[in-house]
Nucleic acid binder design. Sequence first.
DNA 1: GTTAGCACTCGTATGTGATGAGTGCTAATA
DNA 2: TATTAGCACTCATCACATACGAGTGCTAAC
Lengths: 350, 350
Amino acid sequence: MLTPRKLAILQAVIDEYILTGLPIGSRTISKRNDMNVSSATIRNEMADLEDDGFLVQPHTSAGRIPSDKAYRLYVNMLMHTIDLDENERNSIRKYFDVKMQEIEQLIGVTAQALSETTKLTSVVIGPQTSQLKLKRVQLVKIADTTALIVFVMDTGVIRNMTVQIPQDITPEYLEALSQSLSKCVEDKTMQEAVNEIRNSFSLEKGENRRLLDTVIDTVSKSDSEVQERNIIFGGTENIFNHPEYRNIDKARDFLKLLEKKDNIYNMMSKATDMEFSIKIGAENDIDQLKDMSVVMATYKFGNSKIGSFGVIGPTRMNYGKIMSILSYVGSNISSILNYMIDDDDGLYLK
Amino acid sequence: MLTPRKLAILQAVIDEYILTGLPIGSRTISKRNDMNVSSATIRNEMADLEDDGFLVQPHTSAGRIPSDKAYRLYVNMLMHTIDLDENERNSIRKYFDVKMQEIEQLIGVTAQALSETTKLTSVVIGPQTSQLKLKRVQLVKIADTTALIVFVMDTGVIRNMTVQIPQDITPEYLEALSQSLSKCVEDKTMQEAVNEIRNSFSLEKGENRRLLDTVIDTVSKSDSEVQERNIIFGGTENIFNHPEYRNIDKARDFLKLLEKKDNIYNMMSKATDMEFSIKIGAENDIDQLKDMSVVMATYKFGNSKIGSFGVIGPTRMNYGKIMSILSYVGSNISSILNYMIDDDDGLYLK
DNA sequence: GTTAGCACTCGTATGTGATGAGTGCTAATA
DNA sequence: TATTAGCACTCATCACATACGAGTGCTAAC
């Protein structure tokens, strides 16, 4: 049974451990002024908490440290998000106070802001263009056999790629094609659009056929690749800030994981259904993160969640604070994104 | 004086040290079958080499390790580039055997190929568009108040960015403007082009003036930013492969350096005048690299060197091998780049 | 000029004992 | 019955001592 006192003790252990990273002994807890019982009593309670799987002893004569289960309970029940003070807000806001030219810059700034304020490794994935709806398509001839194909999403995001075209295609033809393609893809996702084009234009023959095929081909190929690259990390060196990770082999594994990107990318994109997602220790699917925690949040563009960002660090992290930071960073991202589309003379979104 | 025997001993020490990373003693050298003198003789010679600054003793009763000066001599005189065998060539070629869609992919693959075959940290910087000549400019209206501005470089590289435009600008006007802009910027670098536009169109007034100003503004701003982002690293975790860097604080500093990017970017772009550039230990301008070596090479597009790539690792690296690898990787990059422009139905360069 | 021999150096590994934080358990207490 | 004081016990950590061995510099002999 988790009596109120047990909960209080557990909370105290977690708080203390998050602060120091050292195993917490019974006396440390009993000395806290909100505890009015002796260390012996605490010891008995702690023994019970250990039996219930909330505390772990690294070795017989050491204090206790919280288990993943304890952190989970903490996050679910005991934690109060910690409001940021004016100073902290300012130091975050100053990252976003520069004029953003393109979405990549925003992603970079976000990663930086996150890692520097949390002192953890940050991850940001860019807008998932695959989930956005298309507004129009524009083909532009830029060389004899090369055209640029530009996708304008409903949020204003632009994606473009080059495509080889037969030599005798005229700009006027491309303009006409752009018009009819635009009609047919409006309000569809990239993937849907590709299918739609396949169907609607299935009767085309000859040169047109070849052109369309190349377009479809190029688009679908690049779709997967763009995503893979659209993830960035910040403060990778912060992994060393935490004594429990001052271990070369762990660090190497971690860097390797970041370098591969796709594992983390998958993890991040899975989490887009909730406002926050917290994975503690073994709750992580990725092996190398089994003794770390990942806290993620999503950002919105208009009404739909189109990307996510978060931090990776030791299970011993200040969840309350981290969540407040994520939340504040998120609101900054949103306002920048909106600013980017709304503002008439300033900032443009690529 | 550096007698032939001294040189041979120095070479032996370097070879051995590159292999093991441990201080090399006189007996180790004298046992090599190409040495027919006793360890005592070697000791005397080594003492001389130490006086001349080619060898260093980490402490009194340890063997010797080569100094930066020794590596420099080695690279200049003693080193023979080591031909790659069929296996090694294949394992590199397989990285480039995939179809490349865009230049970013090529950069990524290069970084990967380099870091995996050298087991070092690799750096690749993308084509320096600022040094390329423009072929034409194309403005395309993609929304009510947004246009895409596309720069086509003479090598086929394309750069584009969005720009806000007054609402009443027609596509036809943009087309006409594209024509006259193209004429005026042809064969100039981005920077020259901006100046040229400023001069040639200095008489424009009103709406046109505003449009032009916005274009010039956007372009010059983004010019610097694009470059900054156009550098990527591979195999950062390889820093830990070398015993001399199994030191957390060194590793942290190194990661921090990579994260900042601009220092390394500057170093890399300085080195574009030579085929190879080797910086050994203290020859590096960057503090954190004072005990590492950087080997860089450049790649060409058409006739001009437009980017560079290389590796960063311990001064104790197999320079001969590394250079062969860089050279082979370089030739792969070139052929891919040419393929990208020449091939009519396959690959496109963004 | 080369080499064998030897005393010397010094980093590394190993072992030992002291220290102290923290525990579990028992018996006394409220 | 819950709490607490007291105490024996555990065990990681640290300081210190010792042994080991790779490698050196130097000298004297070849």
